[in-house]
């Protein structure tokens, strides 16, 4: 029997789901091995009977938490899909501000007290709300990795997600190191699995797949000196995708 798969989206750009639509002909292979029962972005059909829930987006409101918990109750396996879901991603950038401040900043003085759509909390990754079985990292997640995780789930094996830094893949691609070009890149400490797509395209890594281990001050002292950066400025580099690392821990 084919496993039943459902895709869900929360606060996100829906780029992750688009990556699935972008599998092109392989989307047809996908529906040979799994039964897609819900995928709102491209499907009208919907069922609440699924084995695997693939969840995109951050959780930013109590109503979203409620919806996510329901999904968790139904799904045997829950996969966090993309940076917003796995690590909070860009949605967490606003977390240093209080939710009320954020609302006021954007909507002015309109009173949203009784409106649950506007009952906004701090942005959370999916595993801050429910248990996550597997993670598909990245912003957007590479199509190769999406396929890898889905096939692993179909075969009943644990997906083999890299636990090593982007440098490994970047060097294999024979790129000129961005540090050599004077850019500050998170490649040495960011999780690989993207085939170093940013450095390969001449762009410094922002760590969208998460930071493997945050180096201590002593470790990067010399490097920061060379780039005329403070430790705080370096940490600011993390914050596009990896805000509030300490809090998360």
């Amino acid at each position: 029997m084919k496993p039943k798969v459902a895709f869900f989206d929360f606060a996100s750009c829906e780029g992750c789901e688009l990556q699935v639509a972008d599998l092109e002909e392989e989307l047809l292979d996908l529906i040979e091995i799994v039964e897609v029962v819900s995928f709102r972005e491209i499907m009208k059909e919907h069922s609440n009977n699924y084995d695997i829930a693939i969840v995109e987006g951050s959780i930013i409101r109590p109503i979203d938490e409620k919806r996510l918990k329901k999904i968790r109750r139904i799904a045997k396996t829950l996969v966090a899909f993309g940076a917003c879901a796995t690590i909070g991603g860009v949605n967490k950038i606003r977390n240093p501000w209080q939710p009320e401040e954020v609302i006021k900043e954007v909507y002015g003085d309109i009173d949203f007290k009784d409106n649950e759509f506007f009952n906004v909390s701090k942005a959370k990754a999916v595993d801050e709300v429910v248990k996550v079985d597997y993670y598909i990292y990245g912003c957007p997640p590479p199509r190769e990795e999406i396929k890898k995780v889905i096939i692993a789930l179909v075969m009943g094996k644990k997906p083999d997600i890299p636990n090593y830094p982007v440098c490994v893949e970047c060097k294999k691609n024979e790129n000129i190191c961005l540090f050599e070009l004077g850019k500050f890149c998170l490649g040495p400490i960011a999780r690989a699995g993207c085939n170093a797509i940013c450095p390969t395209n001449g762009r410094a890594c922002d760590g969208c797949r998460g930071i493997l281990s945050e180096p201590d001050t002593k470790c990067v002292e010399d490097i920061l000196k060379r780039y005329n950066l403070t430790y705080e400025e370096m940490k600011h580099r993390f914050t596009i995708f990896n805000y509030t690392l300490e809090e998360d821990r």
Partner: peptide, 26 residues
Amino acid sequence: APRFFEVMLKGRNYWEVQPITSRICG
């Protein structure tokens, strides 16, 4: 769900603006 990009951009460096606003929409 509202995402508050205006707040996200507050205080960011000019070179961070494109990678952040790109995430408004996939």
